[in-house]
Design a protein around this nucleic acid. Sequence first.
RNA 1: GGCCCCGUCGUCCAGGGGUCCAGGACGCCGGCCUUUCAAGCCGGUAACGCGGGUUCGAAUCCCGUCGGGGCUACCA
Length: 437
Amino acid sequence: MSVRVRIAPSPTGSLHVGNVRAGLFNWLFARHHGGTFILRVDDTDTERSEERYLTEILDGFRWLGLDWDEGVGVGGPHGTYRQSDRFGRYAEVTAGFLAGGHAYRCFCTPEDLDERRSLAQKEGRPPGYDGRCASIPATEAEARAATERFSVRLRFPRHGATEFTDLIRGEMRFDDVTQDDFVILRSSGVPTYHLASAVDDVDYGITHVARGEDLLSSTPKHIAIARAMGAEPAVYAHMPLLFGPDGRKLSKRQGDTSLQYFREEGFLPEAMFNFMCLLGWSPGGDREVFTADEAVELFDLVDVSKNPAVFDLKKLEWLNGEYIRRLEADDFAGRVLPLLGEVTPTQEKAFRELAPLVQERTKRLGEAADQVRFLLLADGDLDYDEASWEKQMTKEFSRPAVEGALAVLGGVEDWSTGSIEAALRAWMEAEGLSPRN
RNA sequence: GGCCCCGUCGUCCAGGGGUCCAGGACGCCGGCCUUUCAAGCCGGUAACGCGGGUUCGAAUCCCGUCGGGGCUACCA
């Protein structure tokens, strides 16, 4: 059986590095096994989903080099691959469950539920749904459905326990008494994540579900849904979560966790790819720097670590520096150039000459751009804005220093990397300056 | 609280009964190189959470404990 895996982002925000890592591992797994990588959009939350986020997410995956064989943007045999287009399908499955006794209507109101839940907790009983509506006769439930609001709950099958083998964590066992009859269709008619996700996985023929460990304890729910559909559940693999530097779950509020941020800062996709691989996986031995092809060849989900990984920016910067230094000079200059904004041909020429000096000592393209930005001022015909110039430059250099440097550069006849460096050095020595000033 | 997952240097990863007084990488510290910085090179710092087992022998297996994390919604 051919491997079919998927990544299913929700377009409710920027592409988070946690999702990137999940996508990366699924992609590696698919490519390693010659399988199919699918990109589906989990946008059942129509309120918070936005097209611009979806665009950013797709763009982010492409930037990293993760291409998908089926899904949004590329099509495939399963429609649009957007859950928002499949509400009819989820309703159909729900109806089937209702008819087959796999699910039942629940007329409890959210307020009732809250009340009973807190009472149960106070009395030390499990806080899950108490099954109150489970025994309402089907005919009665149907009649009430005409006038009352209701949600639909899965009748969680009681066989003792749900057991499965997690590719990363091994044998898993969840006792039935810890499970409850969870909601699959809200009273609004919108399916819950559990339903939509599990149904799609079955419909799309997903063979392996590799996702974050935060979903590990929801797995019995997904298995129950697949079985109620008469399908064989996928093989699951729960990847360790990513933590922030403070040792806590990496969250958007910690600031710079969107892939977009790293792109803008000038991290190379190759470096990002390599670095993300190292978060929870290793090609074995002491290898740390490798290409995507090498990773594809060596990767397998069973080798993924069980421990959560802290996203170490320092190491990413080091790795990025490694990749930057390996770039051809022209390639490097070409990647920094766009970050400088509008440049005249003269400025571009100047920049290309200066670029090798910066390339060997920079960790991020953005940093490189900042270091040479003063070049834009050296061109006489550039009409620059005094105020923004101040703001920009005084962060890095003192004003006299910059003016002095410009004067020196203006006097350079032979506009080449070597003579630029020589001129600047001579000037600094004469002025008794260190580069820090 | 209940259920579940995880515990090797500060961080990422290797090692899965002897070859480990634990290896690589980032970071940090020091040195060399260099007119400065960076890069490069050399060296140093630093870990098997704890307690019991099992075994001739445990970082590796078992139990407990402690610690961290996740889930516990008509969020995903």
